[in-house]
Amino acid sequence: MKKILKEFFISTLLFFGIFHVTLQVDWLNLFHLSPTIVGDKLSEWVWDLTYKGLNEVKNDNVRLPIDTLVHEMCTANGIDTTSISVVISRNPDVNAFATVGRHIIVNTGLIEKMDNEAQLCAVIGHEMAHLELGHIQSGIRQQAIFQVILILLTGNGNIDSLINITSQMISNSITRAKENEADKQGARFLYAMHLNPMEMANTLESFESYGILSYISDHADSKKRAENIRKMHFPHKGPYRQILSQETWEKLKNSL
């Protein structure tokens, strides 16, 4: 028995000794790995598949003005413009959502419903707020995994339903409190770029009046949310500027 104990002790010591030695090395640095590498790679893969399945609008009449708006919003709010990409998808659904890898997808169906650039900025600002406030970061990796499993099960076939499920899962993972936060942050984004922050409230209300549910499926009480925005206090009430010329805006709407 004594011999067993002695040998057991030496074996255990040896095991933990080796483990201890290997622990001294900063392996992640050595191999240039990031702790979130698995999630990042999967997110990248999911995004590639999503992007391939999209019908991206490449018309410069649409892309350039939206890039301008996004750039204005980012610089006014100290966000790295290169870190965010906004993709316009030719899709009649009134929908916009932030997804893996700091991408925001805006459907043409949604842009058609927007009265002015400030409302469009309100939608983009809301989604950007989700990204900036880290609402999507926490849940997104698990979502990516579920998607990967889904892709494996369906055999890559149905990208459209994949995108639907993505946006659905992401909006489901965002709580109502976070939606309110994103609304408010989005309004602040608008204000910082000298646009009327109350357009955020108008946008939310207009969704209700359209009876549009796809974008506001998680926005069950958009009236209440609009009220929350109206209660916000901003020091200066205008004058607000216009970023795009009327002509550019008209061209954008006509090119969809």
Binding site: V25, P35, T36, I37
Partner: peptide
């Protein structure tokens, strides 16, 4: 780690090697 419930860490790699 594969299902992203925890992050990749040097501790994991050390254990993996051991």
């Amino acid at each position: 780690i594969l299902f992203c419930f925890s992050d990749l860490s040097s501790t994991y790699i050390a254990y993996f090697i051991t």
